[in-house]
Nucleic acid binder design. Structure first.
Lengths: 207, 207
DNA sequence: ACCTGAACACCGTTCAAGT
DNA sequence: ACCTGAACACCGTTCAAGT
């Protein structure tokens, strides 16, 4: 779809609004989001966005959905990296999660704040896809015997909660940046150790 | 300080506004907070709150501070309950944290969203007091030899992150209520097990 | 199908003025 | 010291009308 002569007034207003909204959130926070100013910055009338986003909440929902999609992609890339052990992959994935939080703190807050307002199925799917990355790693770890057997969702939720908690604490300003990576390392180490010890068999062959 | 004849126009406007704000947050969410409507509900002019809260952020900060104070009190009560073992106390405290999240989800979100906007020292102190409850329990567990030695803040942050992560996931609607308590139990069990195994000595005397 | 412009009811914030 | 009322510049949302 070429847009050489600027078809009508903006070509693809929806994605232009989303891109600008993402910029505003990153630079000024989610509270600063204003439909009218967004329209102004993009060069359309204040009522033009209405065709693409029913209301303010719909825009935030779309923003959250895009955020979860990007988060999922980044987690997937980290999980499928060059590391050999599942433990190393888990650490890389956890670090990718926290990296997202440091780079897009306000967006992460928005992603987990939009709640079930709109009950958007697309948002739920995008969020679950991000969670699946961790789930798959755990299943692989269990299959290789490196992690104790157990319901993957239950133990996956445990790790996810911890990593998300670290990220949430950081975006709230309650965690000094110097302690951030150390905490992530501790959390993954602690997780792997705990999941090993959960097994009925002795933790080491020579015990 | 008797207020039999209604001193001037409202007696104690500040606490009346805070109480009403807490109610609005609980019933309609933090986004619904409006200084003008608060003033209306309390029966003063829309500019009266200005004397007590410099702006909208100041009100939110005061709300967050009160929230952290209440959270600290509830955690302290749970930590000092009838349980005998430190592990049982840790579980009771974690449950109290999650109970706070289920009863005041929007307030908890606001508490961790106010960020360092105002740099309020009182808010920081109230937040740290809540964290200290967990810290003290861990120190006690380490002293009794039930938990491995280590920097209490570092390992305390680990547990705090996990419990807060569970609460945050719940308030975001990403955790079905039926799984909530099970996850808390898993988390505390996993934590205690991991902290035991971290010790260089064998996990059980008869190993 | 997509966008505009006027209109409405609401905000937060400020400031002179009242008691 | 504490509160009021008018004023200002902003919102989100709606709706008839334009292209």
């Amino acid at each position: 779809v070429a847009q050489a002569s600027r078809p009508y007034h903006h070509g693809n207003l929806r994605s232009a609004l989303l891109a600008q909204a993402e910029r505003v959130v990153r630079e000024h926070g989610a509270d600063e989001l204003s439909l009218r100013e967004l329209a102004r910055q993009v060069g359309v009338s204040h009522s033009a966005p209405r065709r693409h986003f029913a209301d303010r909440q719909a825009l935030r929902g779309a923003l959250a959905e895009a955020g979860f999609e990007r988060l999922g992609t980044e987690l997937q890339a980290a999980a499928g990296g060059a590391e050999d052990s599942v433990a190393a992959r888990l650490l890389a994935t956890a670090r990718a999660y926290v990296r997202f939080a440091t780079r897009d703190a306000a967006l992460l807050e928005l992603m987990f704040a939009s709640k079930h307002e709109t009950e958007s199925a697309a948002l739920d799917a995008a969020a679950e896809r991000a969670f699946w990355v961790i789930l798959e790693l755990i299943q692989r770890g269990q299959a290789s015997g490196m992690l104790a057997a157990g319901e993957p969702e239950r133990v996956g939720l445990l790790l996810f909660s911890t990593v998300h908690g670290i990220a949430a604490l950081y975006t709230s300003g309650m965690l000094p940046p110097e302690q951030l990576d150390q905490l992530v390392v501790d959390a993954v180490e602690h997780f792997v150790r705990g999941q090993r010890a959960a097994d009925g068999r002795p933790p080491a062959p020579g015990c």
